[in-house]
């Protein structure tokens, strides 16, 4: 079959193409820069096995939450409730431990699904802005976590869940969650639908995609990720604290944005999100152990978020 050759991409087109590459690898580039900064500030201590282990361990919980956040942001939404949700899930897991480890895990996962379902249904079928619904959800979850035990922590020191321990096993669980989500996003129809809903909801609708169902699904995924993160937190600390996880919504969003994922939805590589998570944890690691006031970390991550969003917008506007 004879085919007519189409002119190769013009220079301007190539620039546009590279623009996406720049966004996709923003987190990796920043990560390398951060490693250099880490070296400069802490020397070889920075890459000691201990410290790397720390980073890995710290990244697992944020990582699991960030995966959920990532999926939500792909549809152009946002989940501000991930931190509070995690705290509540840890409480639920701890409180249901008397029913046995399997019962407890099942109950926690179910709770995660229900929380996600509520947020998703309200957002999709109520056509409400996700940030306001999940912001309210954040207080609902926090309030529930504080209420069930009147503000007390739940101890699970003797329960089998602590056998998961911490460190690498956490990372393994993160990898499993990440693997499942990766599979859904890249290998299944559902994944394409998620991207399509975020990219051009009208085109998605015209193609016969049930957009509302996809919207509900992503919040359910985020809810389940919250449940897994909650169980990990319980396993690590042996106690569930109702006030834990504050500021995590921020860190997950920062990780996702740094990873090159558009806040308007539809684009973003899975690997970018992972790099973003490592970046955020590494940043915290550097800030935490540098004798600085630990609260500087809050400021720095907030500023990093701003810069990431503005930077992305600027690259995006290159014509």
């Amino acid at each position: 079959m004879s085919t007519q050759a189409v002119a190769p991409l013009k220079l301007s087109d190539r620039l546009v193409a590279n623009k996406h590459i720049a966004i996709d690898y923003m987190a990796w580039i920043l990560l390398v820069l951060l490693v250099i900064v880490g070296f400069a500030m802490k020397g070889t201590l920075f890459i000691s096995v201990d410290n790397l282990g720390n980073i890995v361990e710290q990244s697992a919980i944020i990582g699991v939450l960030a995966i959920g956040q990532f999926v939500v942001v792909l549809t152009g939404g946002i989940d501000l409730s991930v931190g509070a949700n995690m705290a509540m899930m840890a409480m639920i897991c701890g409180l249901t431990m008397p029913f046995g480890i399997f019962g407890s895990v099942a109950a926690t996962l179910l709770a995660g699904i229900i929380i996600g379902l509520i947020a998703g249904v309200v957002i999709a079928y109520g056509s409400l802005p996700p940030f306001i619904v999940t912001f309210a959800m954040m207080f609902v979850c926090r309030g529930l976590a504080l209420t069930v035990t009147a503000g007390e922590s739940v101890s699970a020191i003797d329960s089998p869940i602590t056998a998961v321990g911490y460190g690498w096993p956490h990372w393994a669980i993160w990898l499993i969650v990440a693997g499942i989500i990766w599979y859904i996003l890249v290998k299944t129809r559902t994944g394409t639908k998620i991207y399509a809903v975020g990219g051009n909801i009208e085109a998605a609708r015209v193609s016969g995609i049930n957009t509302k169902r996809i919207l509900v699904l992503v919040y359910v995924i985020s809810g389940v990720c919250g449940a897994v993160a909650g169980m990990l937190a319980l396993a690590r600390n042996g106690v569930a604290m109702p006030t834990s996880g504050s500021g995590y919504e921020m860190q997950t969003i920062a990780a996702v944005v740094l990873g090159g994922i558009s806040l308007f939805g539809g684009e973003g590589k899975f690997t970018g999100a992972v790099a973003g998570v490592v970046f955020v944890t590494m940043l915290r690691n550097i800030l935490d152990s540098n004798n600085a006031d630990p609260f500087w970390a809050f400021c720095v991550i907030g500023i990093v978020l701003w810069i990431a969003v503005i930077l992305r917008g600027l690259i995006e506007r290159i014509r």
């Binding site: 991207y195 399509a196 990219g199 051009n200 009208e202 085109a203 998605a204 015209v206 539809g266 684009e267």
Partner: peptide
């Protein structure tokens, strides 16, 4: 005219 494509896919 507006093609109805998902630009990011």
């Amino acid at each position: 005219q507006d093609l109805n494509l998902v630009q990011q896919l």
